[in-house]
Design a protein around this nucleic acid. Sequence first.
DNA 1: GTATCATATGAACAAATAATCATATGATAA
DNA 2: TTATCATATGATTATTTGTTCATATGATAC
Lengths: 109, 109
Amino acid sequence: MKHDHTKLLHDVDSQMPDDETLAELSELFSVFGDTTRIKILWALFESEMCVCAIAELLKMTQSAISHQLKLLRHAKLVNSRREGKTIYYFLADDHVRSIINQGMEHISE
Amino acid sequence: MKHDHTKLLHDVDSQMPDDETLAELSELFSVFGDTTRIKILWALFESEMCVCAIAELLKMTQSAISHQLKLLRHAKLVNSRREGKTIYYFLADDHVRSIINQGMEHISE
DNA sequence: GTATCATATGAACAAATAATCATATGATAA
DNA sequence: TTATCATATGATTATTTGTTCATATGATAC
């Protein structure tokens, strides 16, 4: 007979957030799950930056950076402001820092 | 003339961790960036669980869960212990909770 | 208006990834 | 040892994802 764990399953399931929330959560983390985007976020720790500066920093095309910034914007991790032709990107809030800091703590052990 | 930002780039670059660290960091976050794995981790918040219980909880095959647990193990987010035929998985440390909590804070705004 | 700089975006393609299937390993009980 | 339960793993496949290329938009200067 296979072993039973219906009681445990019920307890655990009752604490589990709904699927939509968990999907949002994993989507958020997957935004952090790319080297290019992590580098962009880390750069913005120091200062707001325009797209072409980020591209130059990471030695990547403007297009690639722009595509990634779009994802970061949609995840509400960065915001932008226009100044003439230039668009400056900056961190949306402090969660970015704390999430990345927690991640750094984990890998530095 | 294109606009210049060599000074900024130098400053930002000097604060940037090395590529290897940033790669590790993004790999860590990409482990959180999947619904199945987030569900597994959330389940383990409540209690250690054996593989077949997790599979039953998430209504997925044992194989799929086992593959994901492997990734979680390699990221050092979970550990396991054997008890007879059964293998119990549990959270490796408290970073898992704090990272997920920070993520939850961000999406619930 | 035209030219140019800065950025955004759609399509296409290559690489990475998550689930499935079949099978292997490892432990226990008979 | 044979049968069974619990888990792991390799190969395959469908889907997702990141970059590139070409082009579009939007602002400024002339």
